[in-house]
Simulated assay, not measured.
Amino acid sequence: MLVLVIGMLVLVTNLPDKFQQLLAPGKIEQVICTGNICDKPTFDFLRALSSELHVVRGDYDEVLPVGDKGALANLARSMGVDVLLSGATHKFEAYQYEGYFFVNPGSATGAWISESSAVCGAETWEKGPLHESGAKDTTEKPGCTAHNKTPEPRNGPPPLLNELSDGTIPSFALLDIQGPLVVVYVYQYIGGDVKVERLEYWKPMPQETTQEPAAPEPVTTLM
């Protein structure tokens, strides 16, 4: 299942052209927007990508302090989820903390950010699942995984990335959910080109315990 996680759009007219070309209807099964849609054309743009669209209410549903790992972990714990999506910081982040996996898509249009994006154990891709074909960088990098196994990459294009003159990096995330595995493609617009990074999260599975068969109860016989 492909899920687009996008946020801090403000106006779709500010979305990099190369992002708009990649974000075409028919590829994405669900869209989750972490906020700041300022007009109907921007909402309609997201609605056209998938009929299953979820958008946060606005600036009054933030977790405080904004971006605080402890506060986000408390929310994930209270909701009983394994993966928590958040926004508001205007920078991309993906990391594991206290057994949960957190993804913040950053700002798709390059709205202000306070510091550089952070990617935990990502691999660099030339293209992502939204492109016509994908090619993986062969450079070995540590993966952000909970298990020592790598699934075959899905067929089709990879995810995106973008950079403005003030150092802001427009970004969004595409989640490929495969049962207990979540593959995250980070799209960023850097130097006029779309860059893609890939990382993954495995849901920890409960360890199987083998129990020895109970000893038979002694049998009482009458003599």
Rank of each mutant, 00 (worst) to 15 (best):
K27G: 04
L46W: 01
V55A: 06
F43W: 10
E29M: 11
L53M: 10
L23W: 05
L46K: 03
R57P: 00
V55L: 09
E52W: 01
D61Q: 12
S50H: 07
T42D: 04
N14S: 12
G58S: 10
E29Q: 15
N36C: 12
V55M: 07
L15Q: 00
V56Y: 11
Y60N: 15
P16T: 07
C33N: 14
V31H: 04
L15P: 01
H54I: 11
V55P: 02
N14H: 05
Q21G: 02
R57T: 09
L23D: 03
F19T: 01
C38D: 13
I28G: 02
C38Y: 07
Q20K: 13
C33Q: 07
A48Y: 01
D39Q: 10
S51W: 03
F43H: 14
G26R: 10
P25T: 06
F19A: 08
F19D: 00
R57D: 14
H54T: 13
C33H: 03
D61S: 15
T42A: 14
G58C: 08
C33R: 01
R57N: 11
R47W: 04
L23H: 03
K27Y: 10
V31N: 03
I32D: 02
I32P: 02
E52F: 11
C38W: 15
T42R: 03
Q21H: 13
K18T: 06
